[in-house]
Amino acid sequence: MPLPDRGQTRRLALAGSEGAVQLCRDFSRRALLSWHWLPAVDEEQQAVSEDVLLMVSELVTNACLHAPGGPRELRLHWDGDRLRVEVADASPVPPRLRSNADPAIPGGHGLRVVDRLARAWGSLPEGGGKQVWLEVPSPLDRHFPR
């Protein structure tokens, strides 16, 4: 099996919320395929890849719901050790975890999912809006020794 490409950034410019979640999931899946995260060689790699797609969906959905004009851009940067996902939008308001969210009420749980699955996450001001980011360790270390 060839070594996966490392140190790459993929960018997807977005114009509005319509179809953005599926577009971003498809874009992310193609990136994971090119970086050999998919098809997965074991259950752990499959789980990490599915978690990434879920978290991309959650960040993009939040931008669709809470930022004027929806998400502006999705960026994926993989350096061989970690994947960083960034979603830029026009709202300067940083995301926050809901406290005491009722699990029986739909909505408001996306950041809780990100908080549990990502190694780290946060937001930074960017161009009058913000960038919400998360990081996930690479699942490939066992399969591609350095």
Rank of each mutant, 00 (worst) to 15 (best):
H77N: 15
P95S: 03
A90D: 04
V93M: 06
H66V: 04
P92G: 12
S99A: 14
P92C: 08
V56S: 10
H77D: 14
L65Q: 12
A101D: 12
R98K: 11
D102P: 05
P71A: 14
R75E: 15
E86I: 03
T61V: 07
E86A: 08
E86C: 07
S91I: 05
P92W: 05
S99F: 07
R96D: 13
A67I: 06
R72W: 09
D102F: 02
D79W: 04
G70K: 07
V56N: 09
P103I: 02
V56Y: 04
R75Q: 15
L65A: 11
A63G: 08
A88Y: 03
P103M: 02
P94F: 03
A67Q: 07
N62K: 07
D79R: 00
V85K: 00
G69N: 09
E86W: 03
E58V: 11
D89I: 00
R84G: 01
H77M: 12
L97S: 12
P94D: 06
M55K: 00
E73I: 09
L59H: 11
V87Q: 03
C64I: 10
E86V: 10
P68G: 11
R98Y: 13
W78Q: 13
E58S: 14
S99Y: 10
R72D: 13
R82V: 05
V85P: 03
T61F: 10
D102N: 14
S91N: 07
E73V: 08
V85F: 00
E58C: 13
P94S: 00
S57G: 15
P95L: 07
T61N: 14
R96L: 07
T61L: 11
P94Q: 01
P68R: 10
S91F: 05
D102S: 09
P68I: 12
L54Q: 13
S91V: 08
H77A: 15
P95G: 10
E73S: 09
S91Y: 09
D79A: 05
D79P: 03
N100K: 11
L65I: 06
E86D: 13
R96Q: 13
R75K: 12
V60F: 07
V87C: 08
P95H: 08
